[in-house]
Design a protein around this nucleic acid. Structure first.
Lengths: 186, 186
DNA sequence: AAATATACTTACTTATTAGTAAGTAAGTGC
DNA sequence: GCACTTACTTACTAATAAGTAAGTATATTT
């Protein structure tokens, strides 16, 4: 059983990734959890503070995941990273980077900074894995690790969005293409 | 000199791509154009109707562009398509597909349909160019045309978003990578 | 048992939202 | 010169937004 505080973050996270930061309200959370508007303000002084907490929670989840994956091969780690995005589709959600990045100009400063830090964290990890993988000859790619990293994060972010617009197979196409691109040729 | 009606669409389009559909208001448009709130309602009965008009205008602009490009080589046409996305960054805007797709669940039905139609239109055009280009041996790629199309549209949509989050080079990296991928190997 | 902290609710405020009803001034058609 | 349309403004409404001040019930500490 989660604390009310943690439940608020979970619901806010879902609402942000389903509807976007500017389309969800305290009333949405309150009605879902059967509490009052003011109870959310008791735990989070403002929407900006709650929004930042949602990003922080995602960063922590990401760090947990990478630790869990750390004994896998480089290819398997990238595949697990890609699969993490795919899981969002099941809940009719996009990733937090796509949901918040598309509204970046409207976000409070504290959220902007936290989101930028989150992106740096993800990028640093992915580039390191890609470089290690190439050294260990577990994966291969015909571009720089930075370029491959940007191609992967961009591809996954956007294909979740586009799969809502078309009832189609953008995610599957992009996923397959990216994994084929890093697969070691024999 | 544009008509007020057309000016409203231009401003709404900019606001959507700068702030998102749920973060702009009639007041934003009214103050920019020095008209009253109600004047916008005179031209567009509801925000949904205005939103749909914005997408329709983007579709028309896209069709104009593809006509202008039609005598170029396949490679040049894809390059022009990619450059069309890049132009958005100068105005601190993302593409309309990213701006509206990320809020898809919150859009009125008429806008959802128009956005889906716009995506189909773009995809049909791009796949055709990619297939033609391969036949004419002007371009090459080691995946299906559908996969390459999804990789291009995803990459461009997301890199505009991510370049706001990082003050970095996602767009340039993705652009270079994608063009290299379709370049004919000699 | 008294004091204090925790986790809320009740009741409210102020600002902003899309949207509307009624009026007006400047043309256009006949 | 009268009817009608176009392109608005004025003045408003109802709903919803985030946020707050004050009160309350329950548990914990001293």
């Amino acid at each position: 059983m989660l604390s009310t505080r943690k439940k608020i973050v979970v619901i806010a996270d879902q609402l942000i990734r389903m509807k976007g930061y500017n389309a969800f309200s305290y009333a949405d959370i309150a009605s879902t959890l059967n509490i009052k508007n003011a109870a959310i303000h008791y735990h989070f002084q403002s929407k900006a503070v709650l929004g930042k907490a949602v990003i922080t929670a995602s960063r922590e989840k990401f760090k947990e995941n990478t630790t869990l994956w750390s004994n896998k091969s480089s290819f398997e780690q990238v595949a697990a990273f890609i699969e993490m995005y795919s899981n969002n589709r099941k809940n009719n959600c996009i990733c937090f980077m796509g949901a918040l990045g598309s509204s970046f100009n409207t976000l409070p400063d504290a959220m902007k900074q936290e989101l930028t830090d989150a992106h740096d964290e993800i990028t640093v990890w992915l580039i390191a894995i890609l470089k290690q993988g190439k050294e260990k000859q577990e994966i291969d790619y015909d571009m720089t690790a930075e370029e491959m990293s940007d191609l992967i994060t961009s591809g996954m972010l956007a294909s979740l969005i586009l799969d809502r617009v078309t009832k189609n197979t953008v995610l599957d196409n992009v996923k397959r293409t990216l994994l084929t691109r890093i697969e070691k040729k024999k």
